[in-house]
Design a protein around this nucleic acid. Sequence first.
DNA 1: CGTTACGTTGAAAGGGTTCAATCCCTGTGG
DNA 2: CCACAGGGATTGAACCCTTTCAACGTAACG
Lengths: 246, 246
Amino acid sequence: MAEIKSAFNASCRNCGLQKVCFPTGLVKSDIDRLDQVVDRKPPLKKNQYLFKSGEAFTSLFAIRAGVIKLYSFSEMGEEIIHGFYLPGDVLGVDALASKEHKLNAVAIDNVSVCALPFDQLTDLSLQIPSLNQQIMMVMSKEVNEGRSHSEMLIKRNADQRVAQFIWSMAERYRVRGYVCDEFRLNILHRDVAVHLGLTPETVSRILAKLHSENIVTWKKKEVKIYNEEALRIAAGGVCEEVEGFA
Amino acid sequence: MAEIKSAFNASCRNCGLQKVCFPTGLVKSDIDRLDQVVDRKPPLKKNQYLFKSGEAFTSLFAIRAGVIKLYSFSEMGEEIIHGFYLPGDVLGVDALASKEHKLNAVAIDNVSVCALPFDQLTDLSLQIPSLNQQIMMVMSKEVNEGRSHSEMLIKRNADQRVAQFIWSMAERYRVRGYVCDEFRLNILHRDVAVHLGLTPETVSRILAKLHSENIVTWKKKEVKIYNEEALRIAAGGVCEEVEGFA
DNA sequence: CGTTACGTTGAAAGGGTTCAATCCCTGTGG
DNA sequence: CCACAGGGATTGAACCCTTTCAACGTAACG
């Protein structure tokens, strides 16, 4: 029982995501204090919601496993997909200002998360300055991520967007220690299209092209990168390591 | 002298931007403590920099007067304009994570700002929880602003973008207590185009159309709104009050 | 084993860009 | 005070990338 618990409910100290997730830069004793605040939630199944627009904000969430899609609707009822969140990513900062979620977070996978009750987190962060820094870090990263997304939408054409999306997913998996030239990606092509400001048809055509050029394939949720360098070029020549939320 | 000082160097308590700027939601005694940390900078002239990419991050900045353009360059050397910041807006949160500015902030006007040295601000925010909240609020707003920008880029066509830009500028001036159907806007059409992901030619054509439809004119840095409702519709039917950074 | 939603492919249409020429302000110097 | 230069704004025409619409293929799930 204790072993099952540790596998599914690893403490922050034992968690493999420590370097990617919230506790980055905290000393061990502080991680333990944070650990006592963390509320490990039962896993979400595919299509279950972590939170919905309109709900009260109570916690930040750190993803332990699976992928979360963050989205909302425009005034005209169109779906806006703001990003896809991977293990180690933190979710919920958008609601900090209003104390009410404005977005929907849905599992596209089986997902398990750690909830960080915000009241307790703020109390603790007043005692642990570096934790406070950490929260700001997460938010600052999210701001910068938004900027990258806008930049892509403004400056990249359809081919570059798709290439960059795949490249950045690979990069994010690499950072997390997965093999990055061949990985499972449960995201619908349709959702990628929406996220990138394109149509599913366009994405399909570009994937076909990337396939015919032996750069990358993405069939049946399975991404395989055959020519990383060509992919990088196709993405518009990315060189910095991005730790973004695609 | 004291009067000159109060006009140009008003304390937070006497500052007309209190409700828009940083101290929102702070009690008077806390505002005074914040006030002691605030470093009122000498005014910037047009084309002078508040900070540049690569510089060390030391302070957040609150704008007292004028307009700041926040921009960077893509990997291919294209200018990316992230937003235009008005009196009461806070600048610099993007650098919180890295402690180094990644963007350029330049005055397009004569601008005066208050610097909030970040070390002192964090110290103070550990003592004043509501100030800490306030910092997060600013960041959270910035995150949401980025989302709005992306949404516009993905879902709005050129006409809607231009209309929405003008509408949101009017709205931001209205919140700040200015007349909002006729105001001065020192921003180059070229810069608006870049910010909106369009070309100057397209913006010019759309402004001509909006003029011919008697909705709005923007000539010689002077914006006049003749038909607010039509403008709202042209923007794609905005209804919520946005307090964004255009 | 069928139904449904996702993915693919093709042809046509359109919105925005691109390129080029011209205009028009603003500031500068004679 | 005027001429000139230079950057920004405007306008037109051709082009091109992406969308749209429509039909078909295919994977997943009850």
